[in-house]
Amino acid sequence: MADMMRPIAPPNLPGLVKAAFDKARASGEVSYYPTQVAVLTPGSIPFQLRFSPALAQKPKAPKPKEPNAKPFNPFENPSPAMLIADLPPSHRLVLNKFAIIPEHFILVTRDFKPQTHVLEKSDIAATFACIEDYRTGGQELFAFFNSGPHSGASQPHRHLQLLPVERMKDGLDDVKNGGQWNVLAERLAESKEGLPFQVFTTSMHQNMSAEERHGAYLDLYRHAVNAVFPDGEVSSEGEAQISYNLAMTSASMALCPRTAEGMMIRNKSGEDIGVVSLNGTVLAGTALVKNEAEWDALRDNPDMLLDVFKGIGLSH
């Protein structure tokens, strides 16, 4: 009975997303920030680094005018220009207002639910409905979730983010090692060699039930909590006990416990030049910097990324 109520993504979701993105970008509802890109190989892992100086000027969300007023929630009542489609019974799809990857979109709960709570079966099912819709059309989606203060999460209203993998490859044809890059979460399902932080992974397959997919997520979550708190009890609902990132593709699921959002990097003279912050796209094998000093330093010494990785998660 439970699977009879499973979410079904609208037909031709890739086309709907592209049309909504193009229209919203043309009208100024969505801000698109072009990037320069390089593929680095710290510890032999092809890792995509993007540089967007304009993103440093991204406007901040308006602050409440009254001291006790609740903060602005962009997902509570999205404008028609940002809404892609409803995903009954409990979710909707909206565009990401500030995009560095074209056609970046977001799955949000219709009713407010906390970003810091353990995901429910409906959240996982709705995400995989979108992934399957893309896969049926011959495309791949990378989905990720940021939860907790060290994860890169920025909005308290529960949401998972979705990136078309082909659009994540924009610009890679023209850069060194570009052909070596693919989604890290899928590599990790085969081997974690060279990865300096702990990630828990499992394989997905098309015929899994909603209960099986949610059970796979809960298993990864329990392993991650036990890695942070070896002697603690793990609750499978309510407030999450750790900060973590979750990644999902049609073939894999990966969960990374987080201990910090980012790490300071230094130039050759030992001077601090900026904090490299990472969210769930770290499990895609991508990172973003907003100033030229960071961009230059990491390309000069890609292994500095290994130090960042060691600082944001649990060592093996």
Results as ranks from 00 to 15, higher is better:
I124Q: 07
F47L: 12
M248R: 03
R92K: 15
V108R: 00
R222C: 13
W181D: 02
G313L: 00
N279L: 00
A85C: 00
P89Y: 01
R258V: 04
D3T: 15
L163D: 08
S235K: 10
F309W: 13
S27W: 02
P114V: 00
G178K: 09
N68R: 11
R213T: 08
E294K: 05
N226R: 09
D300H: 11
E166Y: 10
Q206G: 08
Q57Y: 06
V94T: 15
S44C: 14
G238C: 02
L13H: 02
K176E: 12
D123M: 05
S147I: 07
R158S: 04
L13E: 03
A284H: 09
D86A: 02
P42S: 04
M253A: 08
P102K: 15
Q241K: 10
W295T: 02
P89M: 00
M264Q: 09
L306N: 08
M264E: 11
L184Q: 01
T281N: 14
R50H: 12
D219C: 06
K63G: 07
P102H: 11
A297Q: 11
K63I: 06
K310P: 05
L220T: 08
F144P: 08
S191W: 01
P302S: 07
P11C: 01
G270Y: 06
H214I: 12
Y244N: 10
A254L: 05
M263L: 13
N12D: 12
I101N: 08
V175F: 01
H157L: 10
S151H: 02
P14D: 03
A129S: 14
K23S: 07
L298S: 07
A125I: 05
F144I: 03
T127E: 07
I265H: 13
E120D: 06
C130Y: 11
C256H: 10
D307N: 09
E271D: 14
L162V: 12
K176P: 13
F75G: 07
E211D: 15
D303F: 00
I8V: 15
K121Y: 04
K121V: 11
S191G: 01
M82V: 06
V289G: 05
F21M: 01
I265K: 09
K60G: 06
I312L: 04
M304G: 00
A185L: 04
P89S: 10
K23G: 00
P114M: 00
A24Q: 05
A26G: 02
K192S: 10
R258S: 05
A260N: 15
P156M: 09
A19C: 01
D231N: 06
Y217I: 13
I100A: 04
N279E: 00
R167V: 02
E233S: 02
V276Q: 08
I100E: 04
G148W: 06
H157V: 10
W181Y: 01
V94E: 13
G285P: 13
